[in-house]
Design a protein around this nucleic acid. Structure first.
Lengths: 101, 101
DNA sequence: AACATATTCATCCCTACGGGTGAATATTGA
DNA sequence: TCAATATTCACCCGTAGGGATGAATATGTT
């Protein structure tokens, strides 16, 4: 799932959609309104966010309400945090080696 | 830069390359060795990692030595952490509203 | 109820790009 | 000269991003 999560987050439009949804549940049209791109594109972006499990959809008649699901963010944050630790350790060793030499 | 960073991280091969480089500097061939894919593909992945500023290249004769640059990870980690906070706050408000109602 | 209208979202088609390969091309090392 | 290192090129395949069109649902009017 990490692939889909990071791929979904790698687009500024999708990140903006997530920021919008962080202010509260919204319909597809509401989400699309601030963007200059077509509603179709927004719909596709939302589908990618759903595939990444970052967004859930609740259908009421013709209206589709979107809400955030923060769960996948944890996995992404964990991976990045782990890498930062590893890299910092490695660079620290390198620094030490340079200092000793 | 956040776009390139997250896009670069969204591929398992590139994440494996980063993990390899976390163990120390390495040449392109060394990095490519464990993978079943061709050297060309690895070269392309490395270029994407360079574009994302996650990897730096030092050329010595015919050998290209690759090393990590952890800087962009901070930006990514910060964005995710900020979103987690915002989302948690929003979901907390929702919880509160449901409890009050 | 029945029909027209407006709104919402999905589907079809095209273009661009990521990911993969093999072959060709410098460039350096032995 | 010959082998090793890495890039570049041309290409194929799958998919994301975009506009245009169509289907489904809700709303309003007679």
């Amino acid at each position: 799932m990490l692939d889909e999560t990071l791929l979904a987050l790698a687009d500024p439009t999708r990140r903006a959609i997530l920021s919008r949804l962080a202010r509260g549940e919204a319909r597809v049209t509401d989400v699309a309104k601030p963007f200059a791109i077509s509603l179709n594109s927004v719909s596709k972006h939302i589908r990618m966010l759903e595939r990444a499990r970052l967004v859930r959809r609740r259908i009421e008649g013709r209206e589709h309400f979107l809400a955030l699901d923060p769960t996948p963010l944890d996995e992404a944050a964990d991976w990045i945090a782990a890498q930062k630790t590893l890299w910092a350790w490695r660079l620290g060793e390198l620094e030490k080696a340079l200092t000793d030499g």
